[in-house]
């Protein structure tokens, strides 16, 4: 026999049941009206459930739990690089004034900047107080 760990069928079955329950949960969370907590909350719940499913699959089905430290590091590095890409990308997108939910354009004389609306792209909600902003909003809308 080799040194590789043998995972018992019962463990696989339990993981399958957990995965099915989580799949039902993600549909209920998305479609059942009392669970509707706004677009950001719904997305976070969906991603959290998908993350749990991924963790179950990786740890048990893919044997990461029983693998050597070196293999575990390799299994983690894909996630890590993906995190770098997402963080750097959104570091840019979330801080652009025309579509950021966090940054409102500076008020200009004769107009006032409306807070960005989460439910709609900010380019629709932002009034165009000056020529420059109007051009930017226009560009964001049609790009």
């Amino acid at each position: 026999m080799s040194g590789h760990h043998i995972v018992m069928p019962n463990t696989y079955r339990q993981v399958l049941i957990v995965l099915m329950v989580l799949m039902a949960a993600t549909i209920i969370a998305a479609k059942w009206e009392p669970m509707n907590i706004g677009i950001t909350g719904n997305l976070l719940i969906a991603l959290a459930i998908a993350g749990c499913k991924m963790t179950c699959i990786m740890l048990i089905f893919m044997h990461v739990k029983y693998s050597s430290k070196l293999v575990q590091v390799f299994a983690f590095c894909g996630l890590f690089w993906f995190a770098i890409m997402m963080v750097f990308t959104f570091n840019d997108y979330l801080t652009r004034s025309w579509n950021s939910p966090f940054i409102t354009p500076a008020p200009v004389a004769g107009g006032h900047a409306a807070p960005a609306d989460h439910a709609a792209p900010a380019s629709h909600a932002t009034p165009a107080p000056a020529d420059h902003s109007a051009a930017t909003a226009e560009a964001a809308q049609h790009s």
Binding site: L70, G78, F90, P121
Partner: peptide, 29 residues
């Protein structure tokens, strides 16, 4: 380890698409 290295590469391949998805979903909800 070699297989996981391949999967990490696959993750980055799909990662680009996921990133594009995230940006456009954020912009055009």
């Amino acid at each position: 380890m070699g297989m996981w290295l391949f999967l990490a590469q696959e993750f980055m391949f799909f990662g680009g698409l996921f990133c594009a998805y995230a940006v456009w979903r954020f912009t055009y909800h």
